[in-house]
């Protein structure tokens, strides 16, 4: 495949030079103006008052509290989604059963569901007038407790781990697991010794996607978190600071936004490294 691509490039270079230059120009301009400039704006607005202001904004009590809440929420939803992701991917790739396609489509629902609807759904279920409220009143009090924030975050990050693992497990097939089962290995041994090593990088990549998204969820959480300094996550703190409209608090909003982006970029870097390793492994195996 790689050889083919190179050959294609050589052939194309001779014939398509003007078109190539034009298309590259369009892409670079689009990426530059639509994506790089916004990122630059955050960094510029966070840093233009100097490091001192940035750090003091990060040390503000509300920001620290929001950071703690954000990390806690992201961690809990990461754990829940990892368990779900592994179970669902195992079930969807190792067996054939009726309704598998439907199950797959249902797992994808959160991707195309408005965040505001998520919040409404939980209010309808667990809220004061929700039908399930009497059953869970002792643990989930919507919309004033952190549990609602956690639920909403789990919802929006629900498909990420599954979506990363399933293609990898499907590509590997089930022969190894079947053979191990025929030789008498138990489920836990098969999972830990065969499946896990095969999918560990894909799992890491899915987990980082999930965390990155969990850190930044805004709409769904906005309707469920009501008290600043207690259940506010970083994106909500950014909103609160920005909406006051005062110059210094807008600057603080960008400082908090910058912190959020730094976290996200670190996590996405992990994802890219994991993906790079997966790809490299594939190429290595193809050569073997």
């Amino acid at each position: 495949m790689a050889g083919n691509e190179e050959l294609g490039n050589i052939v194309r270079k001779k014939h398509f030079d003007a078109g190539r230059a034009l298309l590259i120009c369009i892409s670079v301009l689009f990426i530059g103006s639509m994506l790089v400039l916004p990122l630059g704006t955050v960094i510029y607005n966070a840093l233009r008052n100097g490091w001192k202001v940035l750090f003091s904004a990060w040390r503000a009590p509300y920001t620290i509290s929001a950071l703690k809440v954000t990390l806690y929420v992201a961690l809990v939803s990461l754990c829940v989604n990892t368990v779900f992701g592994i179970a669902a991917a195992w079930c969807l790739t190792k067996y054939d059963f009726r309704g598998k396609q439907i199950l797959l489509s249902m797992i994808d629902i959160p991707l195309s569901c408005s965040p505001v609807i998520v919040a409404l759904g939980y209010i309808m279920m667990f809220g004061r007038m929700g039908w399930a409220a009497p059953m869970v009143d002792w643990i989930i009090q919507l919309p004033y407790s952190i549990n609602g924030v956690i639920l909403a975050t789990i919802f929006v990050t629900f498909p990420f781990v599954v979506r990363e693992i399933v293609p990898v497990l499907n590509a590997i097939g089930r022969e190894e697991e079947t053979a191990a089962a025929q030789m008498g290995a138990g489920g836990a041994a098969i999972f830990l010794k065969i499946t896990m090593p095969n999918m560990k990088w894909a799992l890491l990549s899915g987990m980082s996607m999930c965390t990155a998204r969990a850190l930044g969820e805004f709409g769904a959480v906005f309707a469920l978190a009501r008290s600043r300094g207690e259940t506010f996550t970083l994106p909500l703190e950014v909103d609160a600071l920005y909406m006051t409209g005062r110059k210094d608090s807008v600057a603080m909003a960008f400082a908090a936004a910058f912190l959020l982006i730094l976290l996200d970029v670190t996590i996405l870097a992990v994802k890219n490294i994991a993906e790079y390793i997966t790809k490299k492994k594939k190429v290595d195996e193809a050569f073997e």
Partner: peptide
């Protein structure tokens, strides 16, 4: 391969509680 009912059970119950039932509400 063992584990069909366990993993299917986890998948369906979590999917229901987190995604399906709130939307049905």
């Amino acid at each position: 391969i063992p584990g069909f009912s366990l993993t299917l059970g986890i998948t369906i119950s979590m999917l229901s509680v987190i995604v399906i039932i709130p939307l049905l509400s």
